[in-house]
Design a protein around this nucleic acid. Sequence first.
RNA 1: CGGGGCGUGGCUCAGCCUGGUAGAGCGCUCGGUUCGGGACCGAGAGGUCGGAGGUUCGAAUCCUCUCGCCCCGACCA
Length: 594
Amino acid sequence: MKQSKLLLQTLRETPKDADVISQQLMMRSGMIQKQAAGIYSYFPLALRSIRKFENIVREELEKDGCQEILMPNVQPAELWEESGRWTFYGKELLRFKDRKDTWFCLGPTHEEVVTDMVRRTVRSYKQLPMNVFQIQTKFRDEIRPRFGLMRGREFIMKDGYSFHVSDADADREYWVMFNAYKRIFARLGVKFRPVEADSGAIGGSFTHEFHVLAGSGEDGILSCDTCDYTSNIEKTEAPKLATQDHGVAFDLKRDHFCTPGILSQELQAAGMIDTEHPKGMPIAQTSKFFLYKVMFADQSTKLVGAVLRGDHEVNPVKVKNIAGATDIELFPIEEAEAFTAAKSGFMGPVGLKDVQIIVDLSLQGAVNLTCGANKTDYHHFGLSPERDLPGAAFADIRFAAEWDVCTRCAKGHYQAFRGIEVGQVFKLGTKYSKSMNCTFLDEQGKEQPMVMGCYGIGVTRTVAAAIEQNYDADGIIWPWPIAPFQIHLLSLDPANEEVSAVAHQVEKELEAAGFEVLHDEREGLSPGAKFKDADLLGFPLRIMVGAKGLKDGMIELRDRRTKAVDKVPPGQILELVQNAKNRMMKELESAGGR
RNA sequence: CGGGGCGUGGCUCAGCCUGGUAGAGCGCUCGGUUCGGGACCGAGAGGUCGGAGGUUCGAAUCCUCUCGCCCCGACCA
């Protein structure tokens, strides 16, 4: 492919509205252009990468018997009304009317359509299980699209759905897909982790997210350094810490400490001074308190108070799940202050009415704690949650932290990573099959709802994530399997006849051997400019043909990642390229996840 | 949706405070000299200054309204 004819404009300067690396590099390298917030055009280079990744996905899914289908982007409201999501899905669902005044939406996901397809086609247990997928453009009208392809409104996604006669069979398929995803991301050549995640209010079901590891990732991940336990920090089980020795329990001393005007936990602890604590309280002997308003599926609400050790962080997702709620928000500060009759910083769990109190596990059995007195500027001392908070539940509601002991193996410690969520496997159960009446006849001739699973991969996000993990100061460093081209061939003196002849010969030879070559034969550009462009585009291998090298009968091969250069006569370049490819593919095998 | 910021040739930005009829660098075209890490000289093309209204003899500049975009907080692949 001749670069002079490629639809491409590289930029020397970073467009000002690009703020993450992948977006900056994809815009500078002419791969994408923004059309509107979160909506991009893909140029040939980008599309080549996307297609390559899609094909990896296809190949691996087809190995497990998944069938590719294509569903409509524009979906009738009827189906969404049936599942109940027309009202529940919020504003991310872009809705509009056609000329006949009928409501439609742009598909943000396809559970409704696929369930409709299957219920109209599958009648018998003999036709199950069934696993179908599509690779298609999705639209979600995100409140705040950002980070280029990482969180667009329009994006390409692989979504797959499976249908089963039983829960057990859905579980079996879940792990089949889990392993298929591991193969897919391993082939991509990126570092990744399958991560246990919060399954939300759907309840009982388990789910894994697949994360590409990158410092810029939006999600926190904790991974045990000894066993396989890896989870989203929203979900990571926090170990119960040993109860600390706070001496012999005494009664609750009300309004014991006065730390006026001091809000932060550390300063408060330091300011809690009495004759026995002239230097203030240790922070682990203080407690902190948060009031949440939780909402349930039937739209009712309730107040929940969370009590934690002063040096721990509350995890609202855990609080929400323990309360059995579908949604949670911090009780607005003014309302909370009115409710407790104390300013922020001095609220506490003692004596509150109509509040469900949940105490973190690490405070179970603790005595002589401090807590807010529900009186501005004052704290109680001597709190014993089990004694002083009747009706309180004890549960794990704190964020696990790096170096906490793993709850699964009790040996290892958590290590922290940042991740970009690129895929998810999820057991749906019968949520859609029941509401949409997607049933089959079992061996007894009895009608049963199908058990469903769903499996997503953000295709465009994955390509962006691969860049987030593979770049340097000069540009992208593509992993071989999804590089737009594998080889960048630079004619440094294209007007020189010998250079041109050799370069075209090399191009032909490599292409004949099955390699993808972009030939930069543009005239009138200095070598330096071509080098800069080549580094920016970041194909794994670069071949340089110049008059200077040919004087000695040599052309050069350079590795984008290591910058190592080999010189050979043109006749040996094919062999050298083949060796380099083999080496890179071998290195990829060790780069993947576990 | 709340808070903050920005809209000026394809890209990055100056000019705005203190109104006087639009500028630089990069990119692009043509000619010439260069040619191994973003070369140089000369000549060009390209902008209703996001949009509408207002103030004024005169608005990129001041006022009002609007649209779009970006960043920080609750959703998600």
